[in-house]
Design a protein around this nucleic acid. Sequence first.
RNA 1: GCCCCCAUCGUCUAGCGGUCCAGGACGCCGCCCUUUCAAGGCGGUAGCACGGGUUCGAACCCCGUUGGGGGCACCA
Length: 500
Amino acid sequence: MAVPPTAPTASVRTRFCPSPTGLVHVGLIRTALFNWAHARHSGGTFVFRIEDTDAARDSEESYRHLVDSLRWLGLDWDEGPEVGGPNGPYRQSERHDVYREVAAKLLASGHAYESFSTNEEVDARRRAAGQDPKLGYDNHDRTLTEAQKAAFRDEGRQPVLRLRMPDEDLTWTDLVRGEVRFAAGAVPDFVLVRGNGAPLYPFVNPVDDALMGITDVLRGEDLLPSTPRQLALYAALTDIGVASGTPRFGHLPLVTGEGTKKLSKRDPTSNLDVYRERGFLPEGLVNYLALLGWSIAEDRDVFSTAELVEAFDVTRVSANPARFDLKKAEAINATHLRALPVEEFTARVVPYLAAAGLVGEPPTAEQDAVLRAIAPMAQERMVVMSEAVGLLGFLFVDEVAIDPAAAEKQLAGETAVEVLDAATTALRELPEWTTPAIEQALKDALVEGLGRKPRQAFGPVRVAVSGRTVSPPLYESMELLGRERTLDRLAAARTLAGAG
RNA sequence: GCCCCCAUCGUCUAGCGGUCCAGGACGCCGCCCUUUCAAGGCGGUAGCACGGGUUCGAACCCCGUUGGGGGCACCA
């Protein structure tokens, strides 16, 4: 026997609707990612909309930055700025006529009304009634007569437009939290349009969602308390024919910082750019961000963006807050970085080396040869791309700058002098300059000859050659560097060690 | 203050009434490998906030307590 369908299967439409103010926050991006993944998983549509209704705080630069960030992460949108679509414009600053018209309908239909009370008057009324002023607006102006309104106007007052909240409980089934209920009367009539005519976020956001046919609203938990207002607005919009029903809501867990508080824009770890500049891979960051509230399987947490799309299920998103853990983000990224085909890795590393002035862009033939040779060895000891600068820089300069800490550790005292001298002697006359020959010569001279333990024998040589205690494999590095530069560096380090 | 949300290792999580003396990952510790540092391999450490129910049986359901968080604008 056939089971009747439980709901019309209209195709999913999600949206990401940031306001372009300041930095791009990783929590914001996590929200974008989940909306995107939900749309892609279900074969739906992902809409990108800019909520720039606050001229004082919005900036064009911030808008560009948002667009650029989404592109970098590979979160493509089907409708929105720069790609267009049938429901545009997609910037609220260009939609004021729409809001004016909807506001007028709401007023005419009686769902909204003009309110003249000042905050001071509301406060005073609350106190007079022995109530806490924090209760907010008291719905006092619902019943104003035309004569009273006219009197206020004569005083020069400009009314705000408020939505008349229904006198019944407001509930919905949250996609991540299940049943949520707010008691009737708990939410006062709220302002849709300012006295000066400027529409407010709680008004324009649902209006645009309705007009753009959004079916699934995935947003931060901080917006959960505003949902009853949206539900009421949606009912009114549906009544006047602007909306055709209410979307599903899913409130995503907050992303917290070091403590237990919501990750603030002030916290440097909240800035997406920091990760991009450090050389996180977009797919690595996407993977980590997806883990903030979601998991792909019981025994796995590294996955591609394609696998994320394939497996993503909003209803399996966790309801508890997630702390942003840099160490884990790095570990996930490192795994992605190592999994890159070596040519791909090389190509991605070039911009970082070029920005540091180490190679040309594109690299010269010689630089390219060195890069290709060292890439596989560099790849397995890096976490983020920018580390290539410190790790490989010594291969692309004439004289290496020795890290003071490394010098102190490995180039101080008699033993270092001895080692460097022995290494120099062994390498100067080496018949062929190849990795195996270098290895054999050094082992003979330092381990056999001087009787040093490998870890003590090669430390000073490594620092002399690369300038650091951490480097790609030593013999290969020396071969790439060439005999002349290698001997010069041993000599320079010898001077340093001798002086110390 | 009022409203709402949340509660499994230090952290992110798996778990959707028995297969859990709770699994994975990061971190941390140890060992192996080894030319440093990594990487890799192997092993270890550590948790169901508390109290009541319901049930033959609860990490999973219900209630309460405690704790944490979020929201209460003519900001978004």
